[in-house]
Simulated assay, not measured.
Amino acid sequence: MAQEVRGVIAPGRNQPVRIDTVLVPDPGPGEAVVAIQACGVCHTDLHYREGGITDEFPFLLGHEAAGVVESVGEGVTDVAPGDFVILNWRAVCGRCRACRRGRPWYCFDTRNAGQKMTLTDGTVLAPALGIGAFAEKTLVAAGQCTKVDPAVSPQAAGLLGCGVMAGIGAALNTGDVGRGDTVAVIGCGGVGDAAIAGARLAGAAKIIAVDIDDRKLATARTMGATHTVDSRTADPVEAIRELTDGFGADVVIEAVGRPETYKQAFYARDLAGTVVLVGVPTPDMTLELPLLDVFGRGGALKSSWYGDCLPSRDFPMLVDLHLQGRLDLDRFVSETIALDEVEKAFERMQRGDVLRSVVVL
């Protein structure tokens, strides 16, 4: 029998979110119902609310979540009721060409729950990133549940479900930052700060944070940045070169998702260096670069999808690093809020007042 829970609904483009009753079906084959304990307020949720991703309104928002498996459907063996899990939006299939070639982080057939959650009048809800975790309970594919050590706090663990994993993975997985490397991160919101933390974990010798907000630059230093550049008053390309003996950084991570900042990243890297795009552009954006510069500077231009992570590998590892005191996930949590405060959290996010607001249920 379907359960009635409270959830945060985005009813239409640019309309304020509201709390409504959501019907969560019993899990079918390969599915799980998860009781949500905490869920971060991510910019992607705001993009859904604004209609910037799809127009399949109404949406059940929320995806950076952790909680406890309540029940599972037929054939589920990897998780069981009572398991503490982080939800992910890349439940790999194990059968597509990427998975067969040993690159499951590029899986082309990731899975979501087959059944739909609805409003009480039968209106079908589209869960954000196939999760929909601004709710007391949600229905997901069992492969979207990654079991981790329950000693970690839910509000810290849930952030690995999207933004923090994207940033850390951009440094560790996509950028392949190594010991002694110089790294620059352009854009110091939640994802950028996570990239800084990832570069620090990898042993980078110099980590340069670039932003236009003094508050964000100050926070970036607490995450591991060794130098900061205020790009309102300084040319970031020249500043990064000056800080790297005139060469440019080995790895430049662009965490904004704009053509202007991508060009800065492109020209701020060393010859044969790497640019990693982890900031998400909008569909209307285009980029123009001299092809001779692309050829002549060599190196690699990469896009980082979800930090090129494999949740079953990376989530438990990062939780363990946190519990060892080597990765401070709690530092990403600016505030904890109630379910009915999501709209106000969007406003604080847009003003740059918070790194992450986290709904605690």
Rank of each mutant, 00 (worst) to 15 (best):
G7L: 10
V8T: 09
V8S: 12
I9P: 07
A10H: 04
P11R: 02
P11M: 04
G12M: 12
G12I: 05
R13A: 09
R13Y: 13
R13Q: 11
N14T: 14
N14C: 13
Q15G: 11
Q15F: 09
P16Q: 14
P16E: 10
R18T: 08
R18E: 08
R18W: 05
D20G: 00
T21D: 10
T21G: 00
V22D: 04
V22I: 06
V24P: 10
V24C: 00
P25T: 08
D26S: 02
P27T: 03
G28M: 03
P29N: 00
G30H: 06
E31Q: 15
E31A: 14
E31T: 11
E31H: 09
A32C: 03
A32H: 07
V33D: 00
A35N: 12
A35S: 04
I36H: 01
I36D: 00
Q37P: 00
A38W: 09
A38F: 03
C39N: 06
C39H: 05
G40Q: 10
V41M: 02
C42R: 11
C42I: 04
C42T: 11
C42L: 03
H43M: 08
H43K: 02
T44N: 05
D45R: 02
L46W: 13
L46E: 14
L46C: 12
H47W: 01
H47T: 02
H47S: 09
H47V: 04
Y48I: 05
Y48G: 03
Y48T: 06
R49A: 13
E50F: 12
G51C: 00
G52V: 10
T54C: 05
E56A: 01
P58T: 11
F59P: 12
F59E: 07
L60S: 06
L61P: 00
G62V: 11
A65Y: 07
A65P: 09
A66C: 03
G67F: 12
G67A: 12
G67W: 03
V68T: 13
V69Y: 02
V69H: 04
V69I: 14
E70I: 07
E70A: 13
E70C: 04
S71G: 13
V72E: 01
V72N: 05
V72D: 09
G73L: 02
V76M: 06
V76E: 04
V76H: 07
T77D: 12
D78K: 03
V79W: 00
V79Y: 11
A80L: 15
P81E: 06
G82C: 07
D83I: 09
D83N: 13
D83T: 07
F84K: 01
F84W: 14
V85N: 14
V85M: 13
L87I: 10
W89E: 01
W89D: 07
W89K: 10
R90V: 15
R90G: 15
A91M: 09
A91T: 11
V92E: 11
V92C: 11
C93R: 08
C93M: 14
R95S: 13
C96G: 13
C96T: 11
C96V: 04
R97G: 05
A98C: 11
A98N: 06
C99T: 12
C99N: 02
C99M: 00
R100V: 00
R101K: 05
G102D: 12
G102I: 02
R103Y: 01
R103D: 09
F108L: 15
F108E: 15
F108K: 15
F108C: 14
F108A: 15
R111H: 13
R111I: 11
R111D: 04
R111K: 14
N112T: 15
